[in-house]
Simulated scan of single mutants.
Amino acid sequence: MEFRLSEDQRLLVETARKVGERFGPEYWRDLDARKAYPTEAWAAICDAGLCGITLPEEYGGSGLGMLELALAIEALTAGGAGSTLAQMFMLNPIFGGVSIAKFGSEVQKKALLPGLLRGEITFCMALTEPDAGTNSLEVRSFARVDGNGWRLNGRKVWITAVPQATKMLVVARTRKVEEVQRRTQGISLFMIEPDRAGVGHTPIDKLGTNTLPSSSVFFDEVRVEPDDLVGTLDDGWSALLDVLNTERIVTTAGLVGTVELAIRSAVTYAQGRKVFGGKPIASYQGLQFPLAQAHALGEAARLLNHKAAALCDLGEPYGSAANQAKLLAAQAAAQATERAMQTMGGMGYAKEFDVERLWRDARLFRFAPVSEEMVLNFIAVHDLGMPRGY
């Protein structure tokens, strides 16, 4: 087992670090206040080739692995953005890139991947529904046969960056549950435009991740063409799992970067703050121990995520490692941001010191893209062999 980075990986991390620091805390603080989309940062990421790390070389990508992508996201998010920047990678190299590169037709690959790599085409994914939540097998959005295509009806909720997306990956049933032998059958993936006739969306006011809007989405007799189908009709579940498991790796990498950024901010503040006799508060064990604990948990999440990414790149099962890493990373980010705020006292509550933004943004990932409770359910059933209770 090799823990040292190769020279190419070190160069990749250094490139990502420089881009991340170019768009530091001030940039993200301003976007957060204005609830503005990170157009400039994403353009720079694409220009640096970081969007296409895992995508095929024949379409302009680097043809590298999920491990390299995780390393880059860690460095980018630690530069000042925190966990919300990782969502840009979920939206584009994962929802758009993985789905098309692995399961799309040659026509779809040629039409979408080069534009994705240049940052000209952006994506979102419409999966979560009000009555399904984490249980994706209960999606009710339905695409019924209409001539040589389909008509899509249904509702989605908590869909990220719909107004800015060029394309939307939609998860829908194409066969009713009562018509199939297993619930995993009868699910299909479609790639449509968010502004297609019959698609509507409304914003959701929320606590954090303000740079990327969340929306409720409605489908009313939306025409879906044969060329919009991604992968195999009625057999989209396995493709969806590939998308969701790689999403876990990206999420964890962003949280690991958040842990690093929050602790660094707290330590810097604590080293310069002197009270009670002139000693820096960084010397107080009451402040040291919680930050050290969060750091250790973050490093454990980082290593477990690297394992998941490496297994993914080898074509071996990685779902358990990816889920466990996400669980630890979300908890580490919660601890790191909370304790960073506590270390700074009142200034940790001030927007100018940024940790309150990191705290707000990271809180989302205790229950998204999969909740801690569902990860623990997964571990109990799949890793411990315990009976399923839900």
Rank of each mutant, 00 (worst) to 15 (best):
T134S: 13
T134Y: 09
T134E: 15
N135H: 11
N135T: 12
S136M: 14
S136Y: 14
S136K: 14
E138S: 06
R140I: 04
A143N: 03
R144C: 01
V145T: 14
D146G: 02
G149T: 06
G149C: 08
W150D: 02
L152K: 00
N153D: 04
G154S: 01
G154P: 02
V157H: 11
V157P: 10
W158A: 09
I159V: 15
T160F: 07
T160S: 13
A161K: 04
A161G: 02
A161H: 02
A161V: 04
P163N: 03
Q164G: 02
Q164R: 11
Q164Y: 04
A165E: 04
L169M: 04
L169E: 00
V170Y: 00
A172I: 00
A172Q: 01
T174G: 01
R175D: 06
K176R: 15
K176S: 11
V177C: 07
E178V: 10
E178K: 10
E179K: 15
R182C: 03
T184I: 13
Q185N: 10
Q185R: 11
G186V: 02
G186Y: 00
I187A: 03
S188K: 04
L189N: 07
L189M: 13
M191E: 06
I192V: 12
E193L: 02
P194N: 02
R196D: 02
V199G: 01
H201L: 07
H201R: 13
P203G: 03
D205P: 01
D205Q: 10
K206C: 13
L207Q: 04
G208L: 06
G208P: 07
G208N: 08
G208E: 01
T209W: 01
N210G: 03
L212F: 05
S214F: 11
S214I: 08
S214G: 09
S216V: 06
F218P: 06
F219G: 01
F219W: 00
F219I: 01
E221L: 05
V224H: 05
V224E: 03
D227P: 05
D227K: 09
D228L: 12
V230L: 10
V230S: 08
V230C: 12
T232H: 11
L233K: 14
L233G: 13
D234G: 07
D235L: 14
G236F: 00
G236V: 00
W237Q: 11
S238H: 06
A239Q: 09
L240P: 11
L240I: 03
L241C: 08
L241K: 06
D242L: 08
V243N: 09
N245A: 08
T246F: 08
E247C: 12
R248F: 13
I249F: 08
V250T: 07
V250I: 09
T251R: 14
A253M: 13
A253Y: 08
L255D: 15
V256M: 12
T258S: 14
V259H: 09
V259Q: 10
E260F: 04
I263R: 05
R264L: 14
A266S: 06
A266N: 09
V267P: 10
T268M: 15
A270R: 11
G272F: 03
K274G: 06
V275H: 09
F276C: 06
F276T: 03
G277A: 08
G278C: 06
